[in-house]
Design a protein around this nucleic acid. Structure first.
Length: 485
RNA sequence: GACCCCUUCGUCUAGCUGGCCUAGGACACGGCCCUUUCAAGGCCGCGACACGGGUUCGAAUCCCGUAGGGGUCGCCA
């Protein structure tokens, strides 16, 4: 029986579901699929001052939206629970007692004021700010208000392996006597992650690079407990365009934002997979399954990628174009109020016209607004092609109107042919006619394919809009104002 | 500042067991084609091995140094 390889991602419940969380989760998920074992989602909620119960569901829900299923998590349970660290405090306390008994940790009752003063002094002397060891040998009583600190060796160094890099060595002087248990009885990340990872059977850890410097503290804990070290893989940090660590101020970092702004989960996932990972065959578009298939931890890059929204938008367009009409209409109606209010069958007719024109699903309403209103407004200047008179233009539009009025039903091919004939008879370029017509029908310079749009709109509406345009040409000061709908 | 990590086109990257690299692909950008607008699509173009030393017949690929960027230095994770 082989030992299960288990990887985990620990979403913080403090704040929005973060794109960095999804990034780490994706790689953990792929790793677990490739290596076997269980993929655990644990809730790091030991910072009670920032804890927000609502965001826990948001994170779990968003990872579900992305299609990254955990084998075990607080919602679905599993053999290694509970999965909320706030429900495991007894474990951490017991672990601390053990550490204190063996001399690997100690109680400390230094006040915030004293610590601040010590650090200020150290900074003034250009020393590295760190705990000065005041309580190391003081034997602070257990019934006083205190924290528990890790007793880091005063000399020597800690070396650990990272699956993506050469061995990393950090001198003990660089390692602070980390607080393991806070005075409120909750553990810090360092204690909690080591205790939980061990108790939950976690043998392989993929986490963000920002943890590299605190890994020696974790190594010290594993050694004190006599537990086998896990394998570490520190993933590169996602960055803003200005190269700093990805942040809310400079980049949308909330997964909710991406969902609300018309991004498809498969596009986001694909994009995240592109960051810090390269297929040897130059592939750019891939599904989760294909990513898992190609995944190998050794192929993860160590340089930190910049999160490029422009490329994500392109990729999102690619995925929008792949959608079948039914799915497209569903997604569109989730995010576009006008489309949601309109008849579903109508939206299903319109949607294909815009499918290859959208980078985000949220662009749909603006692109197709003219379908839902009775009339559109258009100005005299827009309507008039260069070097044409208003009377001439009105005459040509009148002919187009007649062609439409005389046809039984509007058919794309027939209508286009008829309109081209109108242009030719009037010695107009087809382009001129279509532009004038486009303004008349849509009220815009740019629109979805004109003929198709007209056929969907129907005879009556087209005629009415052309009549409005002809009126404008005869009365330049009064553009048509759409009626309130 | 100290320590740690990183360094191929503006961005994401291929390359990394040295020669197939006058460095390939994608996004973006510019041009052309297609075309009723805008897209989509097709073609072309612009554009990088941070720098300096080595090792070698030969280095983007190995070594050293420098520079630059990022991260960490909390009773946050």
């Amino acid at each position: 029986m082989s030992e299960p390889v288990v990887v985990r991602v620990a979403p913080s419940p403090t704040g929005d579901p973060h794109v960095g969380t999804a990034y780490v989760a994706l790689f953990n998920y792929a790793y677990r699929r490739k290596r076997g074992g269980r993929f655990i989602l644990r809730i790091d909620d030991t910072d009670r001052s920032r804890y927000d119960a609502g965001s826990e569901e948001q994170i779990l829900g968003t990872l579900g939206w992305l299609g990254i299923p955990a084998d075990e998590d607080p919602e679905h349970g599993g053999e290694a629970g509970p999965y909320r660290q706030s429900e495991r405090t007894d474990l951490y306390r017991a672990a601390c007692d053990e550490l204190i008994a063996m001399g690997a940790a100690y109680r400390c009752d230094c006040t915030k004021e004293r610590l601040d003063a010590v650090r200020a002094e150290q900074r003034k002397n250009k020393q590295q700010p760190r705990y000065d060891g005041h309580c190391r040998e003081r034997n602070v009583p257990a019934d006083s208000k205190h924290v528990v600190r890790l007793k880091v060796p005063t000399e020597g160094e800690i070396t650990f392996k990272d699956g993506l890099r050469d061995a990393i060595t950090i001198a003990c002087e660089q390692i602070d006597d980390q607080v393991l248990l806070k005075s409120d009885g909750y553990p810090t990340y360092h204690l909690a992650t080591v205790v939980d990872d061990h108790k939950m059977g976690v043998t392989d850890i993929l986490r963000a690079e920002e943890w590299i410097n605190s890994t020696p503290k974790h190594v010290l804990l594993y050694e004190a407990f006599g537990w086998p070290l896990p394998r570490y893989y520190h993933l590169p940090l996602l960055r803003n365009p200005d190269k700093s660590k990805i942040s809310k101020r400079k980049n949308p970092t909330s997964l909710l934002w991406y969902r609300e702004n018309g991004f498809l989960p498969e596009a986001l996932l694909n994009f995240l997979g592109l960051m810090g990972f390269g297929f040897s065959d130059d592939r750019e578009e891939f599904s989760l399954e294909e990513f898992v298939d190609a995944f190998a931890p050794e192929k993860i890059k160590t340089s930190q990628p910049i999160f490029d929204l422009t490329k994500l938008e392109w990729l999102n367009g690619v995925y929008i174009r792949k959608l079948d009409t039914e799915t497209l209409v569903d997604r569109l109606r989730e995010l576009n109020p006008m489309a949601a209010a309109a008849d579903r069958a109508l939206v299903a007719q319109i949607a294909p016209l815009t499918q290859e024109r959208m980078k985000r699903l949220t662009e749909f309403d603006e692109l197709t607004e003219f379908f839902y209103v009775d009339r559109v407004s258009v100005s005299y200047d827009d309507l008039l092609p260069k070097k044409r008179t208003d009377t001439n233009t009105a005459a040509v539009l009148r002919q187009a109107r007649q062609v439409i009025a005389e046809s039984d039903t509007l058919d794309v091919e027939a209508l286009e042919a008829a309109l081209r004939a109108v242009a030719e008879e009037s010695d107009w370029k087809a382009r001129e006619l279509f532009t004038a017509l486009r303004w008349s029908i849509t009220g815009k310079k740019i629109s979805p394919p004109l003929i198709e749009s007209m056929c969907i709109l129907g005879k009556a509406s087209c005629i009415e809009r052309i009549d409005d345009a002809i009126d404008v040409l005869g009365n330049p000061a009064n553009p048509i104002i759409p009626e309130a709908t």
